[in-house]
Computed example of a mutant assay.
Amino acid sequence: MDPVPAARALVAELFPDALYAFLGGSALTGRRTSRSDLDVVVVLDGLGVPYRESLRWREWPVDLMAHNELSLIAYADRDLAGRLPTLPRVCAEGVVLTDRAGRAAEVQAVMRERLSAGPGPATPQMLDRARYVLSDLLDDLAGATDPGEQAFVRWQIVQESARLALTVAGRWHGSGKWLLRELRSYDAALADELLAAHDDPVHLAATATSVLERAGGRLWEGYRADGDPFHQRLRHLTSGDLTSETAQSSGMHRLAAVSGRTAGSGKLWMGQTHVAPSTRSADHHHGASETAIYVVSGTPSFVFLDPGSARETRLDTKPGDYIFVPPYVPHREENPDPDQEAVVVIARSTQDAIVVNLPDLATYWRR
């Protein structure tokens, strides 16, 4: 049976109310084998907890990834941040199986755009770490006397060489067979050379060294990765140090206090938001950040869509109250008071103030 009709029948039978669904992976390519499974992503309205399940449907093995619209974004962001775009590839390169919501094409366009942009350049620290790991493995190979240990080291050198070459080139990584596919897509000659050299330690060392030269050469002696969190200075930021150079939304004014730029924070952003009397902010969300809000003055309201009813829900607050905003939840702030400005202090779980402005609360994919 053809994989596309089979996957469509699976979704129709098991998830008749799916918002949209995709089929991707090897089953759609010339690499399909008798054991290729159906990689199916199904997006469900109101799914509380996303899950991944391996199952057999009729004669097909199925790798099922079930999401709601927010978790699909969150998991795609996680994959892309790790340079392993498994979920985005299934969506971007796959076949649309159903689209009751009319948003599948838009989701695919966003995923394709993000994939085509690449993972971006590696940081110097990332490159140094990769160079060190491969250099250390080459030393292990040179000194290995146990045939079993040497076999394991050789295979790890093949993989680390592939990852380093892809990292230097600003290309996506992969795991297992997908690492080889990514490398072949970027540099087929290098992929062939690494495979041919796997059983020849001298050839393999020369090939891995050539990859290291692309990244700046071997690095072992003198490599240092600072990891001392105990001997640092406190940072004092006064009210005059607050800066408007941070992400903004219409209808409100954000001031950054603690951030990677202002204080060197690695996992935290903190600042203030001011909303003028009788004003509402644009609808927005904060990406992967968890956000905590403390009301300093005024009576601001926080508006979001209830996940059960999709109706606007309003939380009215007063000074001393707190609000927690989970990652990716679209919301807005309103100040109904005609006379008094509303001021809140905000803390976020990322060192940058991620702000994604939206046309409305029901829009998740327009960025």
Rank of each mutant, 00 (worst) to 15 (best):
L47I: 02
V42Q: 05
L64E: 08
R89W: 09
D77F: 13
V49H: 08
D79E: 02
D63P: 00
Y75P: 07
C91F: 11
R78P: 06
D79I: 01
Y75H: 12
D45T: 01
L44D: 01
S54I: 05
P61R: 12
I73E: 13
H67V: 02
M65H: 15
V42R: 03
L87E: 05
L70N: 05
S71Y: 02
P50S: 00
R35A: 09
T33G: 01
L80V: 10
R35T: 06
Y75N: 09
A74D: 13
T33A: 00
P50Y: 00
E59P: 02
R52D: 10
L55H: 13
P61Y: 13
A92P: 02
G94F: 09
E59N: 05
V41W: 12
S34I: 00
L87I: 15
P61F: 11
H67D: 05
G48Q: 05
E53M: 09
P85Y: 12
L47P: 03
D39I: 11
W57H: 12
S34T: 02
R35I: 03
P88C: 15
V41N: 07
G46A: 00
S71E: 06
R89V: 15
T86W: 12
V41L: 01
E69Y: 04
G94V: 15
R32V: 01
D37N: 03
P88H: 10
C91L: 15
D77C: 11
V40W: 05
A76G: 12
Y51R: 12
P85L: 14
V62M: 06
D39H: 04
L80Y: 09
R58D: 13
R83N: 05
D63H: 05
V40Y: 05
G94L: 15
D39C: 08
L70T: 09
G82Y: 11
D39T: 07
V42M: 09
L64K: 08
R89G: 10
P61C: 12
D39W: 05
S71I: 12
G94K: 03
V62D: 13
P85K: 10
L72Q: 10
R89F: 14
I73A: 15
V49A: 08
L80G: 06
R56V: 13
S54A: 12
G46R: 02
L72D: 09
L47F: 03
R56Q: 11
V40L: 06
P88T: 14
P88G: 13
R56L: 06
P50D: 00
V41H: 09
L84C: 06
T29D: 04
V43N: 08
R31C: 01
S54E: 15
L64T: 09
D45M: 00
A76T: 15
L72H: 08
N68V: 06
T86D: 11
G30C: 01
A81P: 00
A74N: 10
V40Q: 05
L80A: 07
E59M: 06
G82P: 00
L87Q: 06
R89H: 10
C91T: 14
V90I: 15
A92H: 08
L64C: 10
W57P: 08
V43P: 13
L44K: 03
R52P: 01
I73Q: 14
L84Q: 06
D77A: 14
V42Y: 04
E59A: 12
H67G: 09
L47V: 03
Y75C: 07
P50R: 01
A81L: 14
A66I: 07
V90S: 04
L38T: 03
P50T: 02
I73S: 12
E69K: 07
D77G: 12
V49F: 03
L55N: 11
S54V: 07
V42K: 03
L72C: 11
L44N: 02
